[in-house]
């Protein structure tokens, strides 16, 4: 990344971190003051009961000199950035290297580490993405070549995306489990469900991108429909396909995480939910950041394949 690009990004990151630290003050003010009171200090108002009736901002203003603990509250409403980073460190490197169940001592990733859970989520994401993207490409070809499919499939594809996935996911899981399909498949199905749609839309647009002139040119050669597909439509669709694959894999990750919420058999989704059960907000945030990192990594991977492919085709 060039310096001209890094500058603005760094500025935004710093601004977000500053805002985050600042937001910790009002968000955690109740807990901060309670901690001081328990330690024998004096705050206004003196009891937690009275403080509960006052707004956050007026508590902040009445106790301006007693807020130093805002960034180190345990089970904070909003854990501070360094708490989240510490949690990420503890549940990745520390757990794997020093933990009893870690890869160094046990030879396999600890089921308490985010690396293990990220792996679980990534597996479901990739399987679901391959199913979804493959299905999406096939549907797009059908839609472009068959007017009947164009009229019948596209509206359903659109409707499918209007159903909230959080409502649909548990049903998919329950149905699949009841017929004995468990493990990675139900999560992958949800991933595929979310990722096929951008691929269909992008691929249809890509396959239809050759203009009249290019199609006429093939007619002057008396080219067959399959020659038109392989020599013109498919190569012309590549930039569109990759753009939608990037959206698709990110959607796929969301699907896998949503699919992990009701099952609680590992994965970042399971980590987030257990964190919220036990008020371990730093655990939720840590899982969230790992998920974001995972998404960024996978999108970058598709981007790399894209640039390689397009360069080989002479289009980049």
């Amino acid at each position: 990344m060039s310096m001209t690009k890094a500058g603005p990004i760094l500025t935004v990151v710093l601004a977000i971190i500053a805002l985050w630290y600042f937001a910790c003050i009002p968000m955690n003010v109740q807990e901060t003051l309670t901690n001081i009171e328990r330690a024998g200090g004096v705050v206004t108002p003196e009891t937690a009961k009275d403080r509960a009736e006052i707004g956050r901002w007026s508590l902040v203003l009445q106790n301006l000199d007693a807020l130093g603990g805002s960034w180190s509250v345990e089970r904070a409403r909003l854990p501070s950035p360094h708490q989240v980073i510490k949690e990420i460190y503890v549940s990745t490197w520390d757990e794997e290297v020093n933990g009893r169940r870690g890869i160094v001592k046990s030879g396999s990733f600890s089921n308490r580490s985010l690396i293990y859970h990220a792996g679980v989520t990534m597996g479901a994401t990739v399987v679901g993405f391959i199913i979804g993207a493959g299905f999406g490409i096939l549907l797009a070809v059908g839609i472009v070549y068959s007017p009947t499919m164009d009229r019948s499939v596209m509206p359903w594809a659109i409707v499918s995306q209007t159903i909230p996935i959080v409502a649909l996911a548990p049903m998919i899981i329950v149905v699949l489990y009841s017929v004995g399909i468990g493990g990675v498949i139900p999560k992958a199905v949800i991933s595929a469900y979310l990722s096929f749609f951008p691929v269909v839309v992008g691929m249809v647009k890509g396959l239809r991108s050759p203009d009249h002139m290019q199609l006429d040119l093939l007619r002057t050669y008396n080219a067959s429909p399959s020659q038109g597909f392989w020599k013109l439509r498919l190569p012309a669709s590549m930039p569109f396909l990759f753009a939608s694959l990037k959206i698709g894999i990110a959607a796929s990750l969301v699907g896998a995480i949503v699919g992990e919420l009701p099952v609680q058999r590992g994965g970042l989704g399971a980590r987030m939910l257990s964190g919220s059960y036990y008020g371990q907000t730093d655990q939720i945030w840590a899982a969230l950041f790992i998920a974001a990192l995972l998404a960024a990594g996978m999108v970058a991977m598709i981007g790399w394949i894209e640039s390689q492919t397009l360069r080989r085709m002479g289009m980049a």
Binding site: Q214, D216, L217, R219, T220, N222, L232, A236, G314, M315
Partner: peptide, 21 residues
């Protein structure tokens, strides 16, 4: 004649495939 490939046709735009040399 078209099916017998009796003519070559040049369009207003070159319309070369960008992915081909």
């Amino acid at each position: 004649a078209r099916m017998a490939r009796a003519y070559g046709y040049v369009f207003q735009a070159a319309g070369l495939y960008p992915w081909r040399t």
